[in-house]
Simulated assay, not measured.
Amino acid sequence: MNATYFRIEMTRLGRDVTALFFVGILPAVLYVIFGAVQSYGEIELAHGNVAMTVMIAMAAYGAVTATTSLGGMAAVERMQGWGRQLGLTPMTDTGFVAVKASVALVVSLVPVTLIYVLGAVTGASGDPAAWVLSAAVIVVGAVTFALFGLAVGQIFRSEASVSAASGLLVVLAFLGNVFFPLSGIMLQIATFTPLYGYVALARRPVTDGVPLQTGMGDPGPAEPLWVPVVNLVVWTIVFAALAVWNVRRGRARQ
Rank of each mutant, 00 (worst) to 15 (best):
N2Y: 11
R7A: 15
R12A: 15
L26F: 14
V29D: 08
I33E: 11
I33W: 10
G35S: 12
A36Y: 10
A36S: 14
Q38E: 14
S39I: 10
E42I: 13
A46I: 06
G48N: 03
G48K: 04
A60K: 03
A60S: 10
A60G: 11
G62R: 05
G62I: 02
V64R: 01
G72L: 04
A75G: 06
G83A: 13
L86T: 10
T92N: 06
T92F: 03
V97M: 14
A98W: 07
K100V: 11
L105H: 11
V106N: 10
V107D: 01
V110L: 15
V112W: 05
V117P: 00
V121N: 12
G126Y: 02
D127G: 06
S134F: 06
A136R: 06
V143M: 12
F145T: 07
L147T: 08
L147A: 11
L150H: 08
F156H: 03
F156G: 03
L172P: 01
A173N: 04
F174K: 01
V178Q: 02
M186E: 15
I189M: 14
T193P: 05
P194H: 05
V199L: 03
A202P: 02
T207F: 04
T207A: 05
G217D: 13
P221W: 10
P224V: 08
L225G: 09
P228D: 03
L232K: 00
V233W: 02
W235M: 00
T236I: 06
L242T: 01
N246E: 11
R248G: 07
A252F: 03
